[in-house]
Nucleic acid binder design. Structure first.
Length: 474
DNA sequence: TGAAATGTTGGGGCG
DNA sequence: ACGCCCCAACATTTC
């Protein structure tokens, strides 16, 4: 009797190691590994430009590690899976769970559809340490504050799955129905990806290397040094985690194996913040579009496309903000400290709605992740869970002086300011004419004047926030 | 995972 | 020696 055939449906788990669905499929029979670019669900939050670039290379790498047996499709997953199933007489289909509301609806419908046809359809937890449906307060409502979520609930729950090995003796099948990765058209038409390409090695192996490098060189300095964007003490694992080239479980246990103490605790709690974001997205499916604290619905946001454009291009006249926005454009990534600074600036100095920041990050970040991106923007704006209070407005001058003290980060992305002395690097408008001249800078020509005045814009924001209704509701 | 305004303290200069 | 002022250096509170 021939071996049974199963479909492994890859989604945000583009790896062979620690992949519960794949391991299960491999133990059950021959495997048809499948990726489907879903063109039906997701709406505005289908992968943005940078994510599509990442996805392209992810799929190429995955195909390679499957010896060219990855089957690639685009369209409606249910139809595609159905025709594959019929064509190859597969006995079942396995996948690791996603948590966006449309994914959950789609997957539930697919599962029901196949089960009714007598086909095995089973999903697994492949990407979270603790799944949202398991982490609730004692009254069965979701947590809205990080610390009790992580300390009391997660850390007291049963420990996460230990990473699984790459399945042995994978018996892979390639379907003649498969398209090529190229046919998905994930690469940009204008080749802007050349500038971000050198910064990343997009593959499961690249993720493993990045993780090991972080454990060897970064983690022991993590608590103190992760705030300094010129230093390489952050993990830069977020894009790999988003697309599933590495799993949180690998990062969690990898860290625990090699380290202990406060540096490790801070790294684990960063993984905890991702869990928290996923929990929020799961329990509050409107998180990407609606203020979690609804009293912010009345906020008098500015409508100012010109200022938004200056922010996007890194032309606000505030060097630490502009450096961050150019890092984003040039590398598809921003250091976390600088994300908070540029976010605070957009929302609190320019008074532009956080959704504009969310959209731009969604398109530009290689780690664009619905849960993390929307939870973080709401956090920055003050309307999110456990959010930065509205009055916490970052001063881009003092933040620059504090976290980029020698200016290395800022000067790297703003070479036009290379000769400006450190004292004025973060506030060039305050530099005496002589100093500017010596540095070869004509304000307004070589580098912009500040788009808004710092003090007044801060005061405006505080006033606007103070006008909001005080009612606490969600 | 702020910043600015306001309050407090203590040392030194000076009449 | 003493009071007074100035002000840096913290500490507290307010937004």
């Amino acid at each position: 009797m021939p071996e049974k055939i199963y479909i492994q449906w890859f989604r945000q788990d583009l790896r062979l190691a620690d992949n519960p669905a794949l391991s299960h499929a491999a133990e059950s029979g021959s495997v048809i590994p499948v990726y489907i670019l879903d063109q039906v669900h997701g709406g505005d939050h289908r992968p943005g430009g940078a994510s599509r670039w990442w996805l392209h290379h992810s799929l190429k790498a995955l195909d390679e590690s499957l010896q060219g047996n990855l089957n690639v499709f685009q369209g409606d997953p249910k139809q595609i899976l159905q025709s594959l199933l019929e064509k190859h007489r597969a006995s079942g289909i396995f996948w690791n769970r996603c948590y966006e509301s449309w994914s959950r609806n789609r997957d539930a419908s697919i599962k029901q559809f196949f089960k009714e046809k007598g086909v095995e359809a089973e999903s697994f937890n492949g990407s979270l340490l603790w799944e949202p449906m398991e982490v609730l307060k004692s009254d069965d409502t979701p947590y809205r504050v990080f610390t009790p979520f992580f300390r009391n609930a997660c850390l007291n729950a049963p420990p996460p799955r230990e990473p699984l090995p790459v399945p042995k003796n994978l018996s892979l099948l390639k379907s003649e129905l498969s398209e090529s990765v190229e046919s998905l058209g994930l690469l940009p038409k204008v080749p802007w990806d050349r500038k971000i390409e050198p910064h990343w090695r997009v593959s499961e192996k690249g993720g493993q290397e990045k993780m090991l490098e972080f454990f060897e060189k970064g983690l022991m300095h993590y608590k103190e040094s992760r705030n300094f964007p010129a230093k390489s003490y952050v993990s830069r694992l977020s894009p790999y985690l988003h697309q599933g080239q590495i799993s949180s479980n690998q990062a969690w246990y990898g860290g625990l194996d090699k380290h202990s103490g406060k540096n490790l605790d801070h790294f684990l709690s960063q993984l905890g913040w991702m869990e928290f974001s996923y929990s929020l997205l799961y329990h509050f499916p409107d998180l990407p579009t609606k203020n979690l604290h609804r009293r912010f619905d009345a906020f008098p946001w500015n409508d100012d496309p010109k200022r938004l454009e200056l922010w996007k291009k890194g032309l606000t006249g505030y060097p630490i903000v502009d450096a961050g926005m150019r890092e984003l454009w040039q590398t598809g990534y921003i250091h976390n400290r600088v994300r908070m600074i540029v976010g605070s600036f957009l929302v609190k100095n320019l008074l532009l709605h956080w959704k504009h920041g969310e959209r731009w990050f969604w398109d530009c970040l290689v780690d664009a992740d619905l849960a993390n991106n929307s939870a973080s923007w709401q956090w920055v704006a003050g309307c999110g869970a456990d959010a930065a209070p509205y009055f916490r407005i970052f001063n881009p001058v003092s933040q620059g002086l504090k976290f980029d003290p020698d200016g290395a980060y800022t000067k790297h992305y703003l070479p036009e300011l290379k000769k400006l002395p450190g004292k004025y690097l973060f506030s060039p408008w305050e530099a005496p004419a002589e100093v500017l001249k010596d540095a070869g800078i004509r304000l307004g020509t070589d580098y912009p004047h500040p788009v808004v005045p710092l003090k007044e814009s801060r005061e405006k924001a505080l006033e606007a926030f103070s006008m909001l209704p005080k009612t606490k509701s969600s």
